[in-house]
Amino acid sequence: MREPQITVGPDLVKLIAEIDEFKGRWEALKTLAPDRLNALRKVATIESIGSSTRIEGAKLTDAEVEDLLSQALSIKSFKTRDEQEVAGYAEAMDLVFEAFEDMRLTENHIRQLHQNLLRHSPKDERHRGSYKTLSNNVVAFDADGREIGVVFETTAPFDTPREMEALVAWARKAIDEEALHPLLVIAVFVVTFLAIHPFQDGNGRLSRVLTTLLLLRAGYAYVPYASLERVIEENKDFYYKALRRTQTTLKGDAPDWQPWVGFFLRCLKKQKDALAARLERERIEAAGDADLPDLSLQVLKALGSGKRLTIAQLADITQANRNTLKVRLRDLVQAGRIRQHGKARATWYSASV
């Protein structure tokens, strides 16, 4: 792989500086109680899983993703393709969060994450964790689902192992030698990885898992608390346009990195801005908690750490009169402090983040 020549103009320099400034302040910013931080992380994880799978065509909402994951341990197999993708993405993300310090960027780790990603999909059993053996060009379809042409020609199966070896070697060297800013290394790695499209399926989802891995290894410790995938989903059209504008130049003498690098850095800025706004809301709410009734504070504490509780369970925990408890629950729901799910006897509550 040729050494990328990236011209970093004033706008990109400003974006990198702003993201790095937030990275440096994270330890001072994360002053929330552990249960609130855990709740923040759980919501961000659900958003990431839901958004990343929806980018690739899944239909499950965040609420459906949350319900599915809460039942995951009791489910023997996931019936629909959407459920399989959600379960696999959740397992891959869990692995990254738990073991990122020990997961250097290697082809073996990339294959391992791909195996996790497709673990629950029987149709992918033969090729999970292995580079592609068939062409997987990016194609366009008409309204009736008929293929109408190739949008982007990915690397041929024969050349994929060699190009992946070169890409990983370049990224490792660039990271170790600090030849480029780590955010630029990650951006180049991701857009090139997607241009190679090394696996038969799951490349888009895997690229986002690898992005999280590389950001965590580069010291961006706040990443699990705000969903980058959500930002990409909300800017999906620009995501694909930026990818194509850079990818179509990669085989030429002067690749144009600017479209993708600019998009990637702007997404990282939106991610950290969203987290900063949530932290500020949490600070304001914490300051206002002094005025809440004691029972309301008990409810908020009980619903910490991502718990889901019914009225009966909350009554047992708080030992409060049910009618009084219902009033406090209604007030907290109206204030946006907690969320109500279900109806009638199936009603349950969770913390809002």
Rank of each mutant, 00 (worst) to 15 (best):
Y239Q: 02
A187V: 10
F264Q: 04
R266P: 04
D176R: 14
V191P: 01
E233D: 08
T249Y: 06
S227R: 05
I196A: 03
A171M: 14
Y222H: 15
R205K: 12
E178C: 14
Q200M: 08
Y220D: 10
T211Y: 00
F263N: 02
R245H: 09
R217L: 12
K270F: 05
L265H: 11
C267R: 06
F199D: 04
L213T: 04
A171H: 02
N235T: 12
E177W: 00
L268Q: 08
Y220C: 11
V190E: 13
A169F: 02
L214V: 03
E233L: 15
L167R: 07
F158L: 05
R244H: 08
P259S: 09
H181M: 03
L194N: 13
T248Y: 07
I186E: 04
V168Y: 13
I175T: 09
A174C: 05
W170C: 01
I175R: 14
I186S: 08
Q271D: 07
G262M: 13
V190R: 08
R217K: 13
Q247E: 14
S227F: 13
S207L: 13
W260S: 09
F263V: 08
L167T: 09
G219S: 12
R205E: 04
W170L: 11
R208I: 03
A226F: 01
V190T: 14
L210M: 03
S207C: 13
R266G: 06
V168I: 15
V168A: 13
V223D: 05
L228K: 01
L214D: 07
T246E: 06
